[in-house]
Amino acid sequence: MAGADTVIFEEEFAKINAVCDRLRGEANALVVFIVDKNGQLISASGETEHLDTTSLASLTAGNVAATGGIAKLLKEKEFATQFHEGEKANIHIQIVGQRVILVVIFDTRSSLGLVRLRVRKASEELNKVFDSLVEKAKKPGAMSVLEEITDEDIENLFNE
């Protein structure tokens, strides 16, 4: 099958969450979240109770995919950054290491300059974490949960 699955382990998950939390604090942001390019939410920080983060993740990935399609047509590698300014909230979208998407939502208590600066730093940190994840996922036994799936498990999914 094309590409690899995204796998997140405990150790890296904690690191990713920490980067998210720190970025939100240092950038004075409302919400920070990380999505994989297929639209799966990886981590979220901030006031997310009233936010439909699943939908946001899918739409962000769709948006990034569409923008990537435009880039390709223009023979650009990618447009790594997007910024949308609203009346109350602004959203900054950054592709990190060509594999995940870092999203920052902020209001007038922050500024685009500050967000950019902090996103740059967070991106470097995230790159390191995702590099180590890729290595880990290659090791034998990394996906043990999948090996243990039984036919019965699969049947039972639908018998509730």
């Binding site: 699955d5 796998v7 297929n38 799966q40 990886i42 999948l146």
Partner: peptide
């Protein structure tokens, strides 16, 4: 390309 999170114990798939 499924998404597996060992920490939050989730398997996500795309159809």
């Amino acid at each position: 390309m499924s998404f597996i999170n060992y920490s939050s114990r989730e398997i996500n798939c795309k159809i």
